[in-house]
Design a protein around this nucleic acid. Structure first.
Lengths: 223, 223, 223, 223
DNA sequence: GATGAATGAGATTTCATTCAT
DNA sequence: CATGAATGAAATCTCATTCAT
């Protein structure tokens, strides 16, 4: 499974999407309705049990509507992916750029991701299902891998800047970026199993973990 | 998805297994062959694409052989689970118990898990698929949840002991146990996408992360 | 095998039917077509050889059409049962209620059942197959047993009234009701094996048998 | 379903049996063991659920033993049929021939059949399953029909003699023979559904029914 | 004689997709 | 635009039968 939090942009290439540039309003509405139904079914039933019939029933429409608006199940799933990722990006990105020091920016990044998760449980569980189960396709796998490599850049950049400023100790930025990303994602998957989990407390612990774990050893070396 | 590294014992209850106490040699051989084929298909194709037909083809046998040796697909998956978990337990447990301080024991635990992963990539990807996709069943979900709660105890105990001895700083042991477990698992899932990943280096970074991130702040507080 | 002639009402409970209240005309047409095909295959081939594939072939449609219109084979069989029983009830019931003395009513009952059989050979053979072979299921068996007990009441009542009026000699009403019911059913099963059987003559003999066999011994006792 | 009580002799032709004239003792023992297991499974599980595997399990032997001793499942079923019918014939025939008047002989016939049923419930339920479910074969159907026609002769003869002696009233002997036969069989099938049924009382009612129902109307005609 | 192993046909069922209306 | 109808592929599972040991 690729780091969910980092799949942000090139995901439209993951599935073979033929984007129609102009969509009527009613078309857009229907698509959104179907996408939302798909998200809920994916989150509740899991990938294997998410059939077009179930999505249609959940949306209160007929099965034919789906294949009318989406050429295939894959295209629908691609749209789910795209929509969730775009939305998450819009939520998180603005705050990221305004933060201050690398250490603060890292904390902000983690906190925002967690908060977004708390507010969009189904959407994130849904793309989790897609990411986890769409791997075998070959093309898909390559793409997700590429996307991951690509998008990890943001975290890597924060970490590298922190090392440059001396805030962070030495470590492999790429690996640590992966670890940060995965620690965040872990909160979601645990939360999926255990809905009583205090997600925000979980986030605080992750923030603290990396705050302590990445900081430069004090020059005075009192340790 | 439950923390893979922690599913160690009660997994035999996850699926309803009727263990025949005595199996002939040839029977055992075939079962192992089929289990291994299932592991490889799960790892390569993913849960959704792992049909009995594909497993049979992969093993070079007819479809009927599988249902002859396993009462159902579920029983086969249960055996996959059981076999991998048993093997992992035999590999890791002996070393865990002999370690010294909590800090050292934590490092050992992480290192061993990572090393085991490096040597059993397919097997761990396979049970990852099973754990992730078998959840919706209700009973399965409950069990995995229970198993997780149960098995996290080992990590929690190490962490709590470390806090008692003053080696570790204050934190929520349960959440941190989850985070450790997930960070380990993350190495595997990233490796699945990016086979060129240096898993052992990844492990070292995780060890370092928690080594730094959990340690008690020096009383002199030079920071 | 339960007495076919007596399974009249509560049969909708035998199988778990989810009745959709409103069915489109084309839907109803297809369902009827499939039900009729099922009846013919059941009557000609027997329960064990009645597969969905055979029914589809007999109806000249693809296998998928059946599972599109019926959720399962059981639901199809339930509909077969329901349709035949409903039809038989509509045919027989009106005449039953208008008859006069118990002796006459018994004769009418027998005659009507036989006449209905003569005109609906396949349908009755079909539900005979269903009744005979659906018993092992537990729930089904219990229900048929219950239905039998329940519906035998009509015959029992006629017989008891005949004893009360002095038309009939003493006998165990329940057992005799069973025997009447079975004698009627017997005509059908024999007819199934021997299509040249004169079913109506058979019916007349049954009527005569019970007419003579149940009548009160004349008080003058000239016998 | 053919009249069970009358299928007595030519049943070996129903299924295609290749009789080996000489069977070793051990061979005979095994065949009997398997046949008995088949009878019990047929009676308890029904035709559709009677697989070779289940029979083998019930007999405590391996599946291969069955196909070693019987060329096919059909041959096994033929043997079941043959064995039960032969046994029933040996039980009933001696008593039939020694009886007195046609009226007495009819009563004896009915009583013996019922008594035999009471003592061989499983065996008769088993061949009931076979007779009812083997009909579609064509050849089988013809044969059973022929066998029925053939064996009904015994009853027909008793009835005809009764008419000749003036004991019985006029009726169609063939049809009445069928009805007698079916009334007896009915007791069995009801008993199968309702094990609490008092089979012997049932038999007495049948005897009384035909005793009253067939007797010649008294010349004094007091009715 | 006996048995476990293996196979392939066939059963029910689910489902993505196409099509006519 | 929308939908119900239809289809055929594929999945799991059962089972009679064949075969090597």
């Amino acid at each position: 499974m690729c780091p969910l939090g980092l799949i942000l942009n090139r995901l439209d290439k993951l599935f073979k999407v033929e984007s129609r540039l102009v969509l009527s309003f009613i078309e857009q509405t229907r698509r959104t309705q179907i996408v939302n139904a798909a998200i809920e079914v994916l989150a509740e039933e899991g990938y294997a049990r998410t059939s077009l019939a179930r999505i249609a029933t959940h949306a209160g429409i007929s099965k034919g509507v789906i294949t009318y608006h989406f050429k295939s199940k894959d295209e629908l799933f691609a749209e789910v992916f795209r929509q969730v990722v775009e939305d998450a990006g819009l939520y998180i990105m603005p705050h990221i750029k305004t933060a201050g020091s690398p250490r603060e920016r890292l904390s902000t990044y983690i906190t925002l991701q967690i908060r977004y998760m708390a507010e969009h449980r189904s959407a994130l569980l849904a793309i989790g299902q897609l990411a986890y189960n769409h791997g075998g396709d070959g093309a898909g796998a390559d793409y997700i891998s590429a996307a991951t490599q690509d998008e990890l850049g943001l975290l890597e950049q924060i970490l590298a800047e922190g090392q440059a400023t001396g805030e962070f100790r030495p470590f492999d930025c790429r690996i640590m970026a992966l670890t940060v990303s995965k620690a965040i994602e872990a909160a979601l998957t645990d939360w999926a199993w255990n809905p009583n989990l205090n997600l925000l407390a979980y986030g605080d612990e992750i923030v603290a973990l990396f705050d302590h774990g990445l900081q430069a050893v004090s020059p005075a070396g009192a340790r």
